[in-house]
Simulated assay, not measured.
Amino acid sequence: MESFAPTQPVATLDAEERGAFVIRVYQHLLLAIGAFVAFETVLFQTGIAEAMFDFLTGASSAWLLILGAFMVIQWMATSAAHNLENEGLQYAGLFGMAAGQALIFAPFLYYVFNDPKNGSGSVAAAAVITVAGFAGLTVVAFVTRKDLSFLRPMLMWGGIAALALIVVAVLFGFQLGIWFSVAMIALAGGAILYQTQQIMARYPSHAHVGAAVQLFASVMMLFWYVLRLVSQLRR
């Protein structure tokens, strides 16, 4: 999570201001999702998604380059989205994150759409599961009185371990199975719980774009691994 200048967090404001902040956050989360769909459509219509899939199929180690580039884009976009002094940079970060997610998803979605055992049905099923899971986790985060800050070290360790496993799998050519997808779904769910509480406890009322970007990254990770699990189960 980003560090902020010492400003009044949303949790200390009255109910009306807290409600207005939450509405702005989820409006911008929907904006990021809409931008992702738009970018993805362009990648498919122009043939870039197919070209990325062919490139990665021919050189599996290229996934490391794509992953590295995505991590740089994600870091830059997150930093820009949390620049509270420049609203233009915040929106650049939001759309930059949507574009980065569209690029990393493009070859995977192309594979699923063109797999006879999966196709659009798997994508639709994964989208529904992701929305339902996100809604449920959001409700839990808002209504629970338990402080979920204890999740932070576990999420950090889980993220580092997952990244190491992905790199090793790419380098040595072995498959990460169904249980890895299940574990990553749990990790994404934990991130959504933690971040939902934190944006209320730590973010000032004018940091809604940064909050939306944080949630968007976790929602997309949840969608990725739900779709991966659905496609694995249908093979």
Rank of each mutant, 00 (worst) to 15 (best):
A141S: 07
A127I: 13
F180L: 06
A217L: 12
A207D: 10
V167F: 04
G190H: 00
T144R: 05
I160N: 09
M200S: 13
G177D: 02
A161Y: 08
G158F: 02
F150Q: 07
H208N: 11
A183P: 01
V168L: 15
S120T: 15
I166N: 07
I199F: 13
A126I: 10
M200D: 12
S205P: 06
L137W: 09
T130F: 08
A127T: 14
A211C: 00
A124C: 10
A191D: 09
L137Y: 09
S149P: 01
S218H: 13
A211E: 05
V167N: 01
L151P: 01
Q175T: 15
L187T: 04
G189K: 01
A127E: 01
G189V: 03
M154F: 15
M154Q: 13
V167H: 04
P204Y: 11
V139N: 05
P153K: 10
W157C: 13
A183F: 14
L193P: 02
V140G: 05
G159M: 06
F142C: 06
V123M: 10
I199S: 01
A207I: 10
L165T: 09
A212N: 02
A162V: 14
Y194T: 00
I185C: 07
A141K: 02
L155G: 04
L171G: 04
A169C: 11
L193R: 01
M156Q: 13
L148G: 00
A217G: 12
R145V: 06
G158N: 06
I160Q: 10
A207Q: 04
F172Q: 11
A191N: 10
G189H: 06
F150E: 09
V213M: 03
T196V: 00
I160M: 11
A126E: 00
V170W: 12
V219M: 14
Q197R: 00
P204K: 04
V168R: 10
V123G: 07
A127M: 12
H206E: 14
R202Y: 15
G133A: 13
S218K: 06
A132D: 04
Q195I: 15
F180S: 00
F174G: 04
I160Y: 12
V140S: 06
V131D: 02
L193Y: 04
P204D: 07
P204V: 05
G158K: 03
T130A: 11
I199A: 01
Q198M: 14
M156I: 15
A183E: 10
A191S: 11
F172P: 01
I129P: 03
Q198R: 15
A186K: 02
M156C: 07
L151F: 11
I129D: 05
M200K: 12
Q214L: 14
L155A: 06
Y203A: 11
A126N: 04
G119S: 08
H208Q: 11
Q197K: 02
I185S: 04
T144L: 07
S149A: 15
A164T: 10
L148D: 03
V131F: 12
Q198C: 09
A161R: 02
G210Y: 08
F142I: 07
K146A: 13
H206P: 08
L137P: 02
M154G: 14
G133I: 09
L215C: 07
V131T: 08
F216T: 04
L163S: 08
R145P: 00
M156H: 11
G121N: 11
A212E: 06
L171P: 00
G121T: 14
M200Y: 13
L155T: 05
W179N: 06
A211D: 03
A207V: 10
Q195T: 15
F150Y: 15
L215W: 05
A188G: 07
F216I: 02
F180R: 03
I166K: 07
